[in-house]
Design a protein around this nucleic acid. Structure first.
Length: 645
RNA sequence: GCCGCCAUAGCUCAGCUGGUAGAGCACCUGAUUUGUAAUCAGGGGGUCGGGGGUUCGAGUCCCUCUGGCGGCACCA
C-alpha cells in the first residue's frame, strides 16, 4: 500500500506505507531534513517520526519559521523540566507552554529556586541536548495515565488529565530518553539534539496553579529559545535596546519626573515633564473642542453616601482611598469621574435636543492599586484620565462610537503610534444584566466598530462588569503593544443614578452613557510616548525645543536675544552660555535629546545668523535669524495645527 | 497581595571567602574664551535603605521592616 502526499505548492508524491515526515524531508533535500522540526498533516501538528496514517496534505515546518520556533520553544520547556527534575528531585512539573519570544515551565517544589541555580540548570540542559535523547510519542489510556501520574507523584499532571483534557481526546505522553516523560499534546522534535544551543533561562517568577490566587503557589522559570545563536543574540540585543527606552530611566535622565517612597504610585512632575504634560493637554483640548465636547471639573473627594448611590462603595471599595474627618464623616477620593459627570447631567432638565452631550474632564483619580501592580508611570495610584462621558440616545450609540474611533485613531497617529487592533471585551463571568442585554450591547459595539471600518478582535470575558468595551491596542516604534483608549456603552450607571432627559414625546427617558478615553491616563500615556520616541520627542512635544549654545562669551548678549525672540515666537528655548567648548555643549544637548541646537559665535552675532543643528544629524545649516524663527515656528506646530483642523 | 531577586555618593557601578568605603560621570573652585558629540587642575560629598542580631570586628553573615525590579494575581 502506498500513501499519497500533497505538498503546499500543489505537488503530489506517493510514499510507502509507514512513511514519516522526517523521511519525506530527507527524500526532498538534505538541508531541509536538517532544518525541519515538525510537520502539519492536514493542518494538524504531527511529529517528524510519526508515521502517516493515510493520504494527506503535508506541510514541513522548519526551525526558523514562526511555527518552527514554537516547536523548538516547547521542546526547550521540556528539556528545562527534565533538567530541573534531574537536579532537584521531588520537584513536580505542571505546565510548560510557549509564550512570546520564549517559554516557561511552572514547577511545584517546597524549596524556592534562585536565579543562582540557572547556570547549573542551563548546563544540565546542554548535557541533555548533547546526549541527543530520542523523544517518543506514546498514546495512553486515560485512566491508566491518571493513576500512573498519581503513582509517580506527579499529581498536577494527573489533575490536568482529569480536569483539562476533554474525555475522548487521546492522552499523549512524550518520553525523552529512557526515564523521563511528560504529558504533552506535542508535537516534539525527534530527539533533544535537534533543539540546539540557542536558548537561555531568563527569569524566575511566582505563579499560581491554573492562575488562581487560591491555588498552590508555583515557581515559574522563563526561558527564551531561538533557531540559532544569531537569533538569540539579536533578541538579547533587542531587550537591551528596549531597556534603554525605559521611561523610568529616561524620565530621570531627562529630568521629567520622579517618584519616592512616601508616595508609592504617585508622580512628582518636574518642570520639563509638566511641560510635556501641558503640551499634550492643550493638544487634547483643541481636539475635543473641535469634536464637540464640553469640559467640566468635578470634586476630588465626595461623601460615602455618594459612592453608595453610584455602586462604587459596594463594588469598588477595595480600590478606593477612604478618609475620615474630625467630625466623623467618611469620604472617598474619587476613583472615577463618571458619577460626578452624571450629577452635572442631572443638574437642570435635559432635552433630547441636548444629546449627544459629550462631557470631558481631565479627571484626577486615585485608586488603591495592589503594591505589586505598581510600575513607573504605567500603573500608578494617582492619575489623570482624559475622560469623557457621552450621554446619548440608544439610536445614537453606533454613530458616536464610530466618531470616537475616528477621533482616537487620529490622535494616536499624531503621537506616532499605529493601531495594531481594537479588542472587543465581551461579557465577563461576573456581570450585571441579562444575556439579552449583553447580546445587544456587544452587538452595538461590534456594529459601530465595523461602521468605522474596523473589525475588532474578540477578547472573551474582558468586558467591564456593567458593559462590554472596545480597547485600542497600539504598536510603538519597536513593535510593542500598548493599550491606550477605550470606549464602553453603559446602560447601568445612568439608570442607577437617575439620569433622565425629556424626549420628543414629552416623556422622560434614560440616556445611555459612553465612557471613553483616548490616551487613557496622562501619566501612562506619557510613559508610552517616552518609550515610543526613546525620549527623542518630535519638535512639537519636546520640553526644550531649541538650545542656543554659544561658542565664546562674546556671543552671550546675542544668544539671549535669540532665545528671547524664540520665546516670543512661542518656542521653548534655553541659552547655554557656559564656559565650555562647543563640542561639549553639542554632546550634552544631543544626549538630552533637544531637537534643535542653535550654535551662535561671533560670526553669527555679527551677521545676525544662527547655525542650526538637528538631533540625529551632523549637518549645520547657517541661516538668518528671521529665517530660522519662521522655519522653527512652523515646524513646532502640533499636528492638528499643521493640518489646520 | 503572592513568589523570586535587588538596595553602596546626585547618576552608573566596583568592593573575593567578615578586618572599619572606591571609580567614572555629575557638582563646587580655579585656569582656559574655545567653531560642531567629553579642555585641564584641584575640591567637597556616603550613619553602605531602616531596625535588630551573630562576632573581638559587619557594606559583607542571619532576622525583620521599608522600598525598587521581574513575573503572578488584579487592572471600572
Amino acid at each position: 500500500m502506498s500513501i499519497n502526499v500533497k505538498f503546499p505548492d500543489g505537488a503530489e508524491r506517493a510514499y510507502d506505507d509507514g512513511v514519516t515526515p522526517l523521511k519525506i524531508a530527507e527524500g526532498l533535500s538534505k538541508s531541509l531534513a536538517k532544518k525541519v522540526v515538525a510537520a502539519k498533516v492536514d493542518g494538524a501538528w504531527w511529529d517528524l517520526t510519526r508515521a502517516l496514517e493515510k493520504d494527506a496534505k503535508i506541510e514541513l515546518v522548519v526551525r526558523d519559521s514562526a511555527d518552527g520556533l514554537e516547536v523548538l520553544r516547547h521542546d526547550a520547556a521540556h528539556v528545562l523540566a527534565q533538567a530541573v527534575q534531574d537536579l532537584f528531585p521531588g520537584t513536580q512539573v505542571t505546565i510548560g507552554p510557549v509564550v512570546e519570544d520564549g517559554f516557561y515551565y511552572d514547577f511545584y517544589r517546597d524549596e524556592p529556586f534562585s536565579t543562582d541555580d540557572f547556570p547549573r540548570i542551563e548546563a544540565r540542559m546542554r548535557e541533555i541536548v548533547d546526549a541527543d535523547l530520542p523523544i517518543q510519542r506514546e498514546v495512553w489510556d486515560r485512566a491508566e495515565a491518571i493513576s500512573h501520574f498519581n503513582a509517580i507523584g506527579e499529581t498536577f499532571k494527573a489533575k490536568i488529565i482529569d480536569d483539562v483534557i476533554p474525555p475522548g481526546e487521546p492522552i499523549t505522553v512524550y518520553r525523552q530518553g529512557n526515564e523521563w516523560k511528560d504529558l504533552c499534546r506535542g508535537p516534539h522534535l525527534p530527539s533533544t539534539g535537534r533543539l540546539g544551543k540557542a536558548f537561555k533561562l531568563m527569569k524566575l517568577a511566582g505563579a499560581y496553579w491554573r492562575g488562581d490566587q487560591a491555588n498552590e503557589q508555583l515557581q515559574r522559570i522563563y526561558g527564551t529559545a531561538w533557531a540559532d545563536e544569531k537569533q538569540l543574540e539579536d533578541y538579547l540585543h533587542r531587550l537591551e535596546e528596549a531597556e534603554k527606552r525605559d521611561h523610568r530611566r529616561r524620565g530621570r535622565q531627562m529630568d521629567l519626573f520622579h517618584m519616592q517612597e512616601e508616595g508609592r504610585g504617585m508622580v512628582f512632575w518636574h518642570e520639563k515633564g509638566l511641560t510635556l504634560w501641558r503640551t499634550i493637554e492643550a493638544y487634547m483640548r483643541r481636539r475635543l473642542e473641535k469634536a464637540g465636547y464640553v469640559e467640566v471639573r468635578t470634586p476630588q473627594v465626595l461623601d460615602r453616601s455618594f459612592w453608595e448611590k453610584s455602586g462604587h462603595w459596594e463594588n469598588y471599595r477595595a480600590n478606593m482611598f477612604v478618609c475620615e474627618t474630625a467630625e466623623g464623616e467618611t469620604l472617598s477620593l474619587k476613583p472615577m469621574n463618571c458619577p460626578g459627570h452624571v450629577q452635572i447631567f442631572k443638574f437642570g432638565q435635559k432635552s433630547y435636543r441636548d444629546l449627544p452631550l459629550r462631557m470631558a474632564e481631565f479627571g484626577a483619580c486615585h485608586r488603591y492599586e495592589p503594591s505589586g501592580a505598581l510600575h513607573g508611570l504605567m500603573r500608578v495610584r494617582a492619575f489623570t484620565q482624559d475622560d469623557a462621558h457621552i450621554f446619548c440616545r440608544e439610536d445614537q450609540i453606533e454613530d458616536e462610537v464610530a466618531r470616537f474611533i475616528t477621533l482616537a485613531n487620529s490622535v494616536h497617529e499624531d503621537f506616532g503610534l499605529t493601531r495594531d487592533h481594537i479588542a472587543l471585551g465581551t461579557r465577563p463571568e461576573l456581570r450585571a444584566g441579562s444575556e439579552d442585554f449583553w447580546d445587544m450591547a456587544e452587538g452595538q459595539l461590534l456594529n459601530a466598530a465595523r461602521k468605522a471600518g474596523v473589525e475588532p478582535v474578540i477578547a472573551e470575558g474582558d468586558g467591564a462588569f456593567y458593559a462590554p468595551k472596545l480597547d485600542f491596542q497600539l504598536k510603538d516604534a519597536i513593535g510593542r503593544i500598548w493599550t491606550c483608549g477605550t470606549i464602553q456603552n453603559d446602560y447601568v450607571l445612568p439608570d442607577r443614578l437617575g439620569a433622565e432627559y425629556v424626549g420628543e414625546d414629552g416623556q422622560k427617558h434614560k440616556p445611555v452613557m459612553l465612557h471613553r478615553a483616548i490616551l487613557g491616563s496622562l501619566e501612562r500615556f506619557i510613559g508610552v510616548i517616552i518609550e515610543n520616541y526613546a525620549g527623542a520627542f518630535p519638535l512639537w512635544l519636546a520640553p526644550v525645543q531649541v538650545t542656543v549654545a554659544t561658542i565664546t562669551s562674546d556671543a552671550d548678549p546675542y544668544a539671549d536675544h535669540v532665545v528671547d525672540l524664540l520665546k516670543r515666537a512661542g518656542l521653548r528655548a534655553e541659552a547655554d552660555k557656559r564656559n565650555e567648548k562647543i563640542g561639549y555643549k553639542i554632546r550634552e544637548h544631543s544626549l538630552a535629546k533637544v531637537p534643535v541646537i542653535a550654535v551662535v559665535g561671533r560670526k553669527e552675532a555679527d551677521e545676525r545668523k544662527v547655525a542650526l543643528r538637528r538631533l540625529g544629524s551632523q549637518e549645520q545649516t547657517v541661516m538668518s535669524l528671521d529665517e530660522a524663527l519662521d522655519a522653527l515656528k512652523d515646524e513646532a506646530k502640533a499636528p492638528d495645527e499643521r493640518r489646520g483642523d
